[in-house]
């Protein structure tokens, strides 16, 4: 590693010596093939960042971004106005609370599944159960929403009829109260098996000698899980949680819109920032205000993602992707 570092440093020193033209002359081809990719990020990531000025404009679709008038913080006023303030607080609250629930339950189930998969010694059973548990991750939320209807629909849905037979009548598509629970269950159902893969990789990498030593000391399987497996998994758990916390301001649009769509009866439980901005844009055509909410989300999101990456790098220097 250190020799590699040394050669890299040497290379860096050599590179410092020559200027822009020499660099292009030398590595022109390599820069040239990057052009399409760099243009992609310039157009589809950086130009929209510039488009955030719409948040400060009295945006008019005919006049466009360059023709619309600026009117300062006018678009942010509605955040504090009566009537909308409650809605904004609700969608921000739902976003943070639902993401918090998703992080907690997904992590618990992914780690538990990984540990339990490891306890399953029968090869066929292990392979089949693992394959099946990852399957939902490969299906879109749109399809999952259709499959969910088969359980929750008032007429004939498997779960709602079963509950009705037991005397419990819930009209799932008009009653928001069970929806946060439903969303958590769906999140775990869809992602826990896939999320477990990371932990399985760590568990299978554990030196079997450690377990054997514990066995000789008379440790039970449970003790081995508590005192060996979980402590070894802890850095991975912390890291994965950190990355999820970094994205806590971003609602899972694909999931929430896929499952709830425009069903306003369920908004109190399931409406998140992303679905709210989408509705303001597509239904109310309120460009300035929806950009204002989007801007606040981007800024808060940036602070969290940046902090999470910083912490992750401090905690586990190898983990940083960049």
């Amino acid at each position: 590693m250190s020799t590699k570092q040394a050669t890299l440093n040497q290379r860096a020193i050599q590179q410092k010596k020559h200027g822009f033209l020499t660099e292009i002359n030398k590595n022109g081809m390599l820069y040239l093939i990057m052009v399409p990719g760099l243009l992609f990020f310039l157009i589809f990531s950086y130009i929209p960042m510039g488009g955030l000025v719409m948040a400060f404009q009295d945006f008019n679709i005919i006049k466009g971004i360059f023709g619309s008038d600026f009117f300062g913080l006018g678009n942010f006023k509605f955040l504090f106005a009566d009537g909308t303030r409650e809605t904004v607080l609700r969608v921000v609250g739902n976003t943070l609370w639902l993401n918090f629930l998703f992080i907690v339950f997904s992590t618990i189930f992914s780690v538990a599944l990984a540990i339990m998969f490891n306890e399953v010694r029968n090869k066929h059973a292990k392979r089949i159960t693992q394959t099946l548990s990852i399957l939902p991750y490969f299906v879109s939320w749109a399809v999952i929403a259709l499959l969910l209807e088969a359980f929750l629909k008032a007429d004939g849905g498997l779960l709602s009829t079963t509950l009705a037979n037991m005397g419990i009548n819930i009209s799932f598509y008009s009653d928001p109260s069970p929806w946060q629970l439903i969303l958590v269950i769906m999140k775990v159902w869809q992602g826990a098996g896939y999320g477990a893969i990371v932990y399985i990789a760590t568990v299978t990498g554990i030196d079997p000698g450690i377990y054997e030593a514990a066995e000789i000391d008379g440790a039970s399987r449970w003790q081995k899980i508590i005192h060996i497996t979980i402590p070894i998994l802890r850095p991975t758990i912390v890291l994965m949680t950190l990355f999820s916390v970094g994205r806590i301001f971003y609602g899972d649009f694909g999931m929430i819109y896929g499952l709830v769509q425009d069903n306003s009866l369920l908004f109190s439980a399931a409406d998140v920032i992303d679905t709210y901005v989408y509705r303001m844009l597509r239904q109310l055509h309120n460009y300035g205000m929806s950009t204002a909410v989007g801007l606040i989300q981007s800024v808060c999101g940036f602070v969290f993602v940046y902090a999470a990456n910083k912490l992750a790098r401090k905690y586990e220097p190898d983990s940083a992707i960049f």
Binding site: Y278, G294, Q297, V305
Partner: peptide, 15 residues
């Protein structure tokens, strides 16, 4: 940086 900060839905839609 594009992973850290985004212009978000509305400017992208307009573009």
């Amino acid at each position: 940086f594009t992973m850290l900060f985004t212009g978000g839905l509305v400017p992208t839609y307009m573009l």
